[in-house]
């Protein structure tokens, strides 16, 4: 199986930069399995990353790849997708990149329902800079910038995406990597803005500060706390308090942005054949 996926990798870029026990490789593997399952054309697929450990994955992948500035991956991706809607555009981002510095772009890309697939590597921490808390770090967790424990409530990014207008929202974990593969494939196939949140482990910057000393402890934590959406629907909020709900959380059909813009083009071009006069008529804001 690994052999089959090698064609998607820039093997000369290895070894990768991730720590031993990091879950990012598992998420990446799920992404590539999904791509392989869908038989995406590498030449017609663009992978856009922001800044952070997970975003570095773009460099390891043999597609059209773009490693952007911190938080802005979705804005770059929006430009690519709108300019060339025929390209498949996948955004890989982390919890800090996507929901903190990039939070505004995230909600607006979701609101537009532009056909992008966001694969959010949620390791609950800023790993690359050494363990600062992010908007997805749960409360009362330890981070280098929360030496007494975090006091800020965290986002539920799936709820956030849905509220902002995303039309496909799913979550899985690195423990449930087969499910993750399936959800990524669904997200890519979905027409519109899709978010797949992958709960992943950062043993170096998060686990060892938060009573999960080994990478295995973190996978066990994922296994023990994940609840599938079908089961979660039968549970009370109290029972779900500390749980991670996984599966396809939300999906609906809605007009997609670049298709709507194509309609704008048709409408505008229709006007041209009519009787549009010189545009020099654009005067001041007042009328005569």
């Amino acid at each position: 199986m690994m052999q089959d996926l090698e064609k998607y990798l820039r093997v000369n870029m290895f070894p990768h930069m991730w720590c031993p026990g990091c879950g990012n490789g598992i998420v990446l593997s799920s992404l590539l399995r999904a791509v392989d399952k869908l038989k995406l054309d590498q030449n017609q697929t663009v992978i856009v990353g922001g800044i952070g450990c997970s975003s570095r994955a773009a460099g390891y992948l043999d597609f059209n790849t773009l490693h952007t500035t911190h938080g802005r991956a979705l804005a770059f991706a929006t430009g690519i997708k709108l300019a060339r809607p025929e390209l498949k555009v996948i955004v890989i981002t982390g919890d800090g990149d996507c929901t903190s510095i990039g939070g505004n772009h995230f909600i607006h890309a979701a609101r537009r329902n532009i056909d992008l697939t966001v694969l959010l590597f949620n390791n609950s921490i800023y790993g690359m800079t050494g363990g600062q808390y992010s908007p997805l770090t749960p409360v009362k967790k330890m981070a280098t910038t929360a030496p007494y424990g975090t006091i800020e409530p965290n986002f539920d990014v799936a709820d956030l995406a849905r509220a902002a207008g995303a039309t496909f929202v799913a979550r899985s974990t690195t423990y449930h990597s087969n499910m993750l593969t399936g959800l990524i494939a669904e997200g890519i196939q979905h027409k519109g803005f899709s978010l797949v949140e992958a709960i992943t482990a950062c043993p170096t910057a998060y686990g060892r500060r938060n009573k999960m000393k080994s990478p295995a402890d973190m996978l066990i934590w994922q296994k023990d706390n994940a609840v599938h959406i079908n089961k979660a629907e039968q549970m009370s909020p109290g029972e779900l308090a500390e749980k991670i709900v996984i599966g396809r959380l939300y999906c609906k059909e809605a007009p997609e942005y670049t298709e709507l813009y194509d309609e704008v083009i048709k409408q505008a071009m229709g006007q041209v054949s009519g009787s549009v006069t010189s545009i020099t008529g654009k005067g001041g804001k007042t009328s005569g």
């Binding site: 020099t280 005067g283 001041g284 804001k285 007042t286 009328s287 005569g288």
Partner: peptide, 15 residues
Amino acid sequence: TGGQGLILAGIIIAD
């Protein structure tokens, strides 16, 4: 005063 359409009036004279 703003709203009297004087900007547009100026544009029309210039045109």
